[in-house]
């Protein structure tokens, strides 16, 4: 009897943690939902679906969401490929200075600083433009490719790539040793596998299993990125957090609830995608 009571009694510190984190998110979601429905908030005039209707039919919101998703996938792919290349080709150098130390430095750079550095380097009047002009490759700054404030988000992608890749290098390097992947690789080669086969059938599956959780978490972080797109993104399309921020802060306060509808919708979509992804992974794991 006593042992079953002890089994079912939740640890109060875990309860505090859950309430402080998940509870705060639920509170924010509830506030956004009620605000978007016109039930709370100074500009609100009672229950209305008008703001939901406006957002669901707003092309700008869906484009922002799609743009954010596309940019996130592209950034993560580029980061993982780059990190994998560094880990495979420079494994020994990562064990000692200077690379072993320098790889940590970009992690200390905040998003705002990274965006400003990107502007100074990649802008039309930036460092790269001046170098190419000095080399005679372009005759005026406007001939330099638009790498910031561009509609494809190239500057955002490159900035996030520079910020995030070192993290994945460290992660993959640790995984390589924790999972003893060099030993498995050697074994595969000894059994006749080519380098490419060892990479595809041994290294990548082991790394992806270990890296997937953090990759997913970082994907969520990049999806909601704010400072970099705000500073060096084009006016359209916006990334989703910039779009929400603009809608909440716009001149007409009567339209402020639309920003909260966007935030609610974004969180719901993300939660559903997370749940579906979890079920798919579980089914895939059970199928093996």
């Amino acid at each position: 009897m006593k042992s079953s009571v002890a089994r079912w009694t939740p640890d109060p510190w875990i309860a505090v943690f859950v309430v402080a984190t998940g509870g705060a998110v639920l509170l924010a979601l509830g506030f956004s939902a009620l605000y978007g429905l016109g039930l709370i908030g100074t500009p609100s005039r009672g229950l209305t679906l008008a703001h939901w209707q406006a957002v669901l039919t707003d092309r700008g919101f869906w484009i922002a969401l799609g743009f954010s998703l596309g940019l996130t996938v592209a950034t993560l792919t580029l980061c993982m490929v780059s990190a994998l290349a560094v880990v495979l080709l420079l494994a020994e150098q990562l064990r000692r200075p200077p690379l072993g130390t320098l790889i940590y430095l970009p992690l200390a750079v905040p998003g705002v600083v990274a965006a400003l550095v990107s502007y100074q380097v990649l802008g039309d009047g930036g460092l790269l433009a001046r170098i190419t002009h000095a080399l005679g490759w372009i005759s005026q700054p406007s001939e330099f490719p638009s790498l910031v404030f561009d509609r494809h988000g190239v500057g955002i992608l490159l900035t996030h790539w520079a910020m995030v890749t070192p993290f994945f290098v460290i992660l993959l390097d640790r995984l390589m040793h924790h999972e003893r992947i060099p030993a498995f690789r050697q074994l595969a080669r000894a059994l006749g596998a080519t380098e490419w086969a060892a990479l595809r059938r041994v290294i990548l599956p082991l790394l992806s299993r270990g890296a997937l959780p953090l990759c997913t978490v970082y994907g969520v972080v990049l999806l909601a990125a704010f400072e970099v797109p705000l500073l060096i993104g084009a006016r359209f399309p916006n990334m989703i957090s910039v779009e929400i921020h603009e809608r909440i802060g716009q001149f007409d306060l009567a339209l402020r609830p639309q920003g909260f509808v966007m935030a609610t919708l974004y969180l719901v979509i993300l939660s559903v995608a997370w749940w579906l992804g979890g079920r798919w992974l579980a089914a895939r794991g059970a199928g093996r």
């Binding site: 802008g123 404030f149 561009d150 509609r151 705000l230 084009a234 359209f236």
Partner: peptide
């Protein structure tokens, strides 16, 4: 015209840079 500076400070920067 695919994008516009987000505020006048950015426009001043473009002018100062000669862009």
């Amino acid at each position: 015209g695919q994008t516009f500076p987000k505020d006048v400070a950015q426009l001043h920067q473009l002018f100062a840079n000669g862009e």
